[in-house]
Design a protein around this nucleic acid. Structure first.
Ligand SMILES: [Mn+2]
Ligand SMILES: [Mn+2]
Ligand SMILES: [Mn+2]
Ligand SMILES: [Mn+2]
Lengths: 154, 154
DNA sequence: AAAAAAGTGTAGCCTAGGCATCATATTCAT
DNA sequence: ATGAATATGATGCCTAGGCTACACTTTTTT
């Protein structure tokens, strides 16, 4: 059994280090944000399906998301549980007021993220791809900075 | 039972719409990327703990991530399974060569993302917070664009 | 050297989000 | 109008990633 240097163990509450307000807090927040990502994508997609003259049936949604309809139905169940959507069998899924608000916010954010990425020089396809994941982690403050950035650089 | 207009159902393969190469493909890729996020954060963190003169024991890792040690241990089990780390009880966790490579890539990406966000005008705290989630979705192509952007704007 | 403290690991429980499969319901085409 | 095709929803199974609780080991302190 190797001996372990006691010095390594002695680590007081990091008095001088770069402050580090709380790395743990950042990770926790990132996990909270991530837990909303799926709902956001569904809301955005359902609104889009309605907007482009169609219905948002589970099968439509599933196809657009690249999942099975069973998976989509379970997610829709969660949307309903969270008060974001309602559904009428064979008639499709409908966003509640709150769901519509979420969808609108998410869509605007998505567009802005793509705009910023392309403005920075990211090729359109990569921008669209990466935005699909990035969007969910862009806070309101960051979003405002994005808007300012686009306005100023015009 | 309300009648449903047959027209709504008639939706040919979207002949004129904005091309839309495959939204499903983008979502699938986003899900793949997300499944790596946890491993990336652990690898980055373990490397950081080692670099800053410490050990990377499950408890250290757990505290920094804001999870219980049991959760950390399960993630470490996955890291080992994926060939990214080894562990010696009461001695801590160690990255394999592959783990080190991953950690280095992830750290560089993290820094670059924060740099770009702040360059755009995002306040430091928000940049650090949002980067924790955004980083995992930044592809190599986007990363290159980020690097160019920073170089040119200097 | 014994006691206390800290760390580790295991087990059991939970939810989210995937999947395939099956039974049923609806819609469409003949 | 009826048979085929399609959509729906339920079930069961899986993995990831959280948690608490408990048992055990190691380290530190007295
Ligand atoms: Mn998305
Ligand atoms: Mn989106
Ligand atoms: Mn991260
Ligand atoms: Mn990071």
């Amino acid at each position: 059994m190797p001996s372990r240097p006691a010095a390594a163990r002695k680590r007081p509450p990091a008095p001088d280090l770069p402050a580090e307000p709380t790395q743990a807090g950042r990770f926790e927040q990132a996990r909270r944000v991530q837990s909303m990502a799926l709902l956001e994508d569904y809301a955005e997609l359902i609104a889009d399906l309605h907007a482009t003259g169609g219905e948002a049936r589970p099968t439509d949604i599933a196809r657009r998301l690249g999942v099975t309809h069973a998976t989509a139905i379970k997610a829709i169940t969660r949307l309903k549980r969270e008060g974001l959507a309602t559904a009428r069998p064979y008639r499709g899924v409908f966003l509640t007021e709150e769901g519509e608000r979420l969808a609108a916010r998410v869509k605007a954010r998505h567009l802005l993220v793509v705009e910023v990425l392309t403005a920075i020089g990211v090729p359109p396809d990569a921008a669209e791809q990466d935005a699909e994941g990035i969007e969910h982690h862009v806070s309101d403050i960051t979003l405002q900075a994005f808007a300012r950035f686009l306005k100023e650089r015009k």
